[in-house]
Simulated assay, not measured.
Amino acid sequence: MTRVALLSRSADLDFLRPLLLAQDASLDIATWPDPRCLQAEVAVCWQTPPGLYAQMPHLRLVHSIAAGVDNVVAGQDLRGLPVCRVVDPLLAQGMLQYVLWGVLHFHRHFDRALANQRRAHWQRHAQTPASGCRVGLMGLGELGGLVAQRLAAMGYAVGGWSRTPRSLAGVQTFSGAEGRQPFLARTDVLVCLLPLTDATRGILGAECFAALPAGAALVHCGRGEHLVPDDLLAALDSGHLRGAVLDVFETEPLPAEHALWRAPGVVVTPHMASMAGFDVVVRQIADNVARLRAGRPLQHQVDSTQGY
């Protein structure tokens, strides 16, 4: 019998218990803060309480319930433990829909129409073809690469930036520190789909915004810690940036008193861009538990040297 701990400091993950037992009735499942969690072999996590793994001497696997793992490894003693994430093909479809909506919000001037509506002001803006809107994707992994190519197929002038060189049909690609400035300089709508690493934390800050053309906009659905909110607010206040669609935040839910809720030109959404179906989540967790027992290679294991 394998004990599985459902760990989160911000959500009650006990709803996963019957779903996991339906996959493997032999599992012994405990939900934090049940002290039995400390004896678990498998941790199933979302925003793990700080320092918890160091108190779990029998832990053999850390498994995120999402595509990202940053919030299950930050501030933890992993001591070489394998970390796995969830990969759902439908995540890419949901992300494409969200990013397309964000791009259209600025390309088709919906942001200006909504602002004019509040003033009862009738104004039609010139309609430009998709080829006249330069979209830039930061992050060309599984999600970013697919979104970039789909937007290019819709006629947008798409560029992409990644840590290491990538080649994608229909996409002008840039890479590394030397490629970031020219990438930003050709971008009207910047889309962030980066993983969170030490190198990408705070990447959406004053230096990034200053390198964008005047009147550029941001669609952010990467990780909350990528964004420096005060720098974004300053770029909006100065008029250098036109607006932003924001789906992720360092603290979630975004506190009611936060200035981003009321900043002109900003759309706040509640971390809804895309999410894995829970049927996929529990199948992949149960499969990896079975693989762990049998000593077989795990699926969707994170490269600890890269953080994704």
Rank of each mutant, 00 (worst) to 15 (best):
L232R: 01
G295W: 10
V219W: 05
E178C: 04
M154H: 14
L59N: 02
L13K: 01
A294H: 07
A113V: 11
E225T: 03
L254S: 03
F183H: 06
G224H: 06
G277M: 08
D24Y: 07
M56R: 07
D247K: 06
L190M: 09
L151D: 02
T269K: 03
V268S: 07
L96R: 13
H240E: 13
F15S: 04
H226M: 06
V73K: 00
T164S: 14
L298E: 04
G102S: 13
V44F: 04
G205A: 13
A130K: 07
L298I: 08
R124E: 09
G243S: 12
P89K: 07
T173G: 05
M272D: 00
P253N: 14
A92Y: 08
G205C: 05
D28P: 01
P270W: 15
Q299W: 06
R180F: 11
R293P: 03
A115G: 05
G265P: 08
M138P: 01
R124S: 07
L78S: 11
Q47H: 15
V44K: 01
A54F: 09
G307C: 14
P270Y: 14
A256R: 13
M275I: 09
A210W: 05
H300M: 11
R118M: 05
L227N: 06
G243K: 10
V99I: 13
H125W: 10
P35K: 12
A120V: 08
Q284A: 14
L218K: 09
A126S: 14
F106D: 01
A206E: 14
R119D: 03
D70G: 12
G145N: 13
R223P: 08
L7H: 09
G136L: 01
D14W: 00
A210P: 02
D28G: 01
Q299C: 11
G243H: 10
V72I: 15
N116F: 00
E250T: 15
L96A: 13
R79F: 02
E252H: 04
V281W: 02
H63K: 06
R262L: 09
